[in-house]
Amino acid sequence: MDRFLFLTLDGLSRGAVYAAFALALVLIWRAGRIVNFAQGAMAVAAAYVAYSVTAATGSYWLGFAAALLAGLLLGAIVDVAVMRLVDHRSPLNPVIVALGLVLLIQAVLGMVYGNEYLPAQTPFSRTALTVGGTAVLSPYDLFVFATVGVVGAALVWVFTRTAIGLRMRAAAFAPEVSRLLGVNVGGMLTLGWALASGVGALAAMLVIPTGLGLHPHAMDLVFVSAFTAAVLGGLDSPPGAVVGGLGVGLLLSYVSGYAGGDLIPLAVLALLLTVLLLRPGGLFAPVTARRV
């Protein structure tokens, strides 16, 4: 029972990161109907910026802030310099371009930093605290929960309570009408990319220290897990991304705890396949009549 509790809490902590990363995917999907397959590589690039800044200044927090800033900037640049120029009439085009971007970013990172695992530090201890003899959460887990919670709440607030959030939603739902009402639709799309990429960078900063360390491919499996989470929740649904993320985190924690960590990639892909077969619209997708 102790073990089950530990795995559950560990899964939720892991799931919080997947939720953040899935949320980033949902943001871009809602803004531009693109699944950003480059999000993992972009987030890793931001984490490398943090590594450099921390190495130069000795401060984890400066590096952390630099990663978020780099994430925001990189998202805006990818939209303006790459995605804006892609012909979106075929949904395959942006996907291919995003995959190309993955290769480019990972190759550049490998050239600059090398393809070795670099150590990634945490600001708080990862040793689990014990309550009444039972190992529960580590201070770092609490930090992860708090950070993801704050960012999630901030996003909800921006999108539902602010003028810029209303503009972003309107631009996503009805670009043409929004322009007639004075909304700079292209600017809103860029802002959406920036926000999503910033959230992605945050997720990378949170999850990379819990794995083997910093590497150009450090987010590959996280991306697949978060993509599964986003599809599970429904790509259109931000609450779905959060629930999906926590669900995938729990599942992977149980799989690795009871069946072995080697099975994680297999479990992720099996889950993704099951969701795509049974409910491709996701759990939170509104039930719609099939268009014929």
């Binding site: 003028a163 209303l166 939603r169 009408v177």
Partner: peptide, 14 residues
């Protein structure tokens, strides 16, 4: 051009 996903108040605010 009413945006169906937004509320009446949001459409007007827009």
């Amino acid at each position: 051009g009413v945006i169906g996903e937004l509320t009446v108040a949001e459409n007007l605010r827009l």
